[in-house]
Design a protein around this nucleic acid. Structure first.
Length: 646
RNA sequence: GCCAUUGUAGCUCAGGGGUAGAGCACUUCCUUGGUAAGGAAGGGGUCAUGAGUUCAAUUCUCAUCAAUGGCUCCA
């Protein structure tokens, strides 16, 4: 007999070789029907795998992330089986479960699969699922494994197996499909009741752009059709929050082929919103001791030779602008730091001047790969809320901390709770990728880690993700469709001060090298507005929204009164407009709701007689009658409330 | 940059070898209506761009550009 300890610390005895499924059956029939996998001493196993000794056991169902993973991983196999049956001779790369579903990378051997074909594959998957094919695990020797896939002619699997050690190779067989796989899997395919193949994409074999491109098919499965239906509805809802759609509907920004792809055009309402965000940050920064500067959009090639950017990015950037007579070369600036370095160097600096915090909403241009462009989140011309802090080594930690505080303040002001923090260090095995000395890198990385620890932030550390000139801390959020974007960034740089030969005179009357911190709490105005737009589904907070209120006259007879109210509100700096169309109130309300204007002020006979407005709040409805003064007070109170503690 | 898909009116989309349609939006007129769409008429498109096949191309073929979904990249 063996002892099995459950998550609630209870212990039960079972015969040796008992399976997770049998244990589930011993607890309840319902659990046995729903158990997808078992966590055995921390490893996830098939529920059909015999347990040999004392273990800690957790039975996993659809409600557990690992349960879902087993389901989706098995679904990838099921899809592969269906595809292999429909398109004999295809070869398979890898087919893992992912956060929402699974994919399989397939070499279609010259064939193509179109969206219409996905239905056929889905149908085949469902019919195979109904056969309740069991997943059979078996350990194979490396030689046998290689032999199997050599005979099958699947060079991708052969390559994968070649990297594995003999003795750790397992195959899973379900129906007609056998795959190299670590597992775990469902007991059988019958658990898969609903299938949706979502999209087809290309993916380089092993993520290497120099290698073969495989066809990747993404899909998701559920144990109930109803859950799939709900998921698809949810996806549709998410699409409506897409900033590219909302941006057009709310007339915030647009693109023009004639201007160029990846070059956003900010429309009046978008510009208005953006300016308000910029002013907000400027105010915060002024308080935190920043000074504003302004620099040109281009810089001489010499500047980028010194900074090192030319060597690293020259070929992949917009090509230089030449002066016709002198033959000088200028680059569109891809970042603001070299300009700011020259500002630092414009006069001798003393330790008494430091820390010196130089800010600029600087517009930069980067030649992003055409396939990478995406709405406002990935563009070729964008404005960074940039600043560079020049400080002494002693000041580094405090300054870094000060920047984190600003980022947190912004996130708080805009109600961003769902963000992650990542610290990016250099790849210790690939040090030649970076510029700067070992010693400087170590100092910088140590400083970031210390501040992060002391700030109480939750963060992940990723090696190999650092910028080429220094380690950094990034703040990321997800968009409506679950894609991760980097917003704020804080980067320590020991490199540029060196390259620009920056110095300050210390209290010892000797020359010292300052440290530089690059930081952008929003990241870029474009990306931030995109993410903010999706975050609030277009319902911007009152202090930010382009139009705070709209006056809706019941009929043309009340236009005069409406204008009176308009002036009253405008005098109190409320952003308000009138819907002057000869439409019915219902129509004007509907249109104002669609435009997501926070307050609608309805004025008609009643209001004109009593000198009031009827207030309707977006998404909520009628709030009743207010005098214009009371409405102004309400707005101002709401604005103050939203800025409390900021 | 790579793979796949797509490109028809401002937006959402239908159509299809014989030079184009709907709804919404827009304009005008009627209507002056009280909390999510009042009615009528009208204007608007080199069917992304360029070449090819054809008596004839918006439709078929190719190329280019752009967008979309991924991959790779991202100072």
């Amino acid at each position: 007999m063996i002892n099995v300890t459950f998550p609630d610390h209870s212990v039960r005895q079972y015969p040796q070789g008992v399976t997770g499924l049998e244990i589930a059956q011993s607890i309840s029939e319902g659990l046995a029907r729903n158990v997808l996998a078992a966590k055995v001493n921390g490893d996830v196993w098939d529920v059909t795998r015999p347990i040999k000794g004392d273990v800690k056991l957790q039975l996993l169902t659809w409600n557990d992330t690992e349960g879902k993973a087993a389901m989706w991983h098995s679904s990838a196999h099921l899809m592969a089986e269906a595809i292999e049956q429909l398109y004999p001779g295809v070869k398979f790369g890898i087919g893992p479960d992912i956060e929402n579903g699974f994919y399989y990378d397939i070499d279609l051997a010259g064939r193509t699969i179109a969206e219409e074909d996905l239905k056929k594959i889905e149908e085949r998957m469902l019919s195979l699922a109904r056969e309740k094919q069991t997943f059979k695990r078996r350990e194979v020797s490396k030689a046998d494994a290689l032999d199997y896939f050599t005979r099958k002619g699947d060079e991708y699997k052969i390559e994968l197996i070649s990297d594995l050690n003999d003795g750790e190779i397992t195959f899973y067989e379900s129906g007609t499909f056998t795959d190299l796989c670590r597992g775990p899997h469902l007991p059988d395919t019958g658990f898969i009741k609903a299938v949706k193949l979502l999209n087809i994409a290309g993916a380089y074999w092993r993520g290497d752009e120099k290698r073969q491109m495989l066809t990747r098919i993404y899909g998701i499965t559920f144990p109930k059709q109803k859950e799939l239906d709900e998921y698809l509805v949810m996806l549709e809802e998410a699409k409506k929050r897409d900033h590219r759609i909302l941006g057009r509907e709310l007339e915030l920004f647009t693109f023009s082929q004639k201007v160029g792809s990846g070059l956003p055009l900010w429309l009046p309402k978008g510009a208005d919103l953006r300016e308000r965000l910029e002013n907000f940050l400027k105010k915060v920064q002024r308080k935190a001791g920043y000074v504003q500067v302004i620099t040109p959009h281009i810089g001489n090639v010499e500047l980028y030779k010194i900074s090192g950017h030319l060597a690293k990015y020259g070929k992949d950037s917009f090509q230089p602008i030449n002066t016709p007579i002198e033959g000088e070369q200028f680059f569109l600036k891809p970042m603001n730091c070299p300009h700011h370095c020259e500002i630092y160097k414009s006069k001798p600096r003393s330790y008494k001047d430091l820390p010196w915090r130089v800010a600029e909403f600087g517009t930069v241009y980067r030649y992003e790969q055409s396939g990478e462009l995406h709405g406002l989140t990935r563009v070729r011309g964008f404005t960074q809320d940039d600043a560079h802090i020049f400080c002494t080594p002693d000041q580094l930690k405090d300054e870094f901390k000060g920047v984190i505080d600003i980022v947190m303040l912004i996130f708080k002001a805009l109600d961003f709770k769902d963000f992650t923090t990542q610290i990016s260090l250099r790849d210790p095995d690939n040090k030649e990728k970076y510029i700067g000395t070992d010693e400087n890198w170590e100092r910088a990385e140590k400083a970031i880690l210390e501040v992060a620890r002391e700030s109480g932030l939750e963060y992940t550390v990723v090696e190999g993700e650092a910028a080429f000139y220094g380690p950094k801390m990034d703040f990321m959020v997800r968009d409506a469709l679950g894609r991760k974007w980097q917003l704020g960034t804080i980067q320590v740089d020991y490199n540029l001060p060196e390259r620009f030969d920056m110095e300050y005179t210390g209290s010892d009357n000797e020359k010292h090298r300052p440290i530089m911190i690059h930081r952008a709490p929003f990241g870029s105005m474009e990306r931030f507005v995109a993410v903010l737009l999706e975050h609030c589904a277009g319902n911007f907070p009152l202090w930010l929204t382009p139009d705070q209120a709209i006056i809706l006259p019941i009929s043309d007879k009340y236009q005069e009164y409406a204008k009176k109210v308009l002036h009253l509100l405008k005098n109190s700096e409320i952003r308000v407009l009138i819907d002057e169309r000869s439409e019915k109130a219902g129509r004007k309300i509907r249109d104002a709701e669609m435009k997501k204007i926070p307050y609608m002020l309805i004025v008609g006979e009643k209001e004109e007689a009593s000198g009031t407005v009827s207030v309707r709040k977006h998404g909520e409805g009628d709030l009743g009658s207010f005098s214009p003064e009371d409405f102004i007070t309400r707005i101002n109170t709401e604005l103050e409330e939203s800025m409390k503690g900021i």
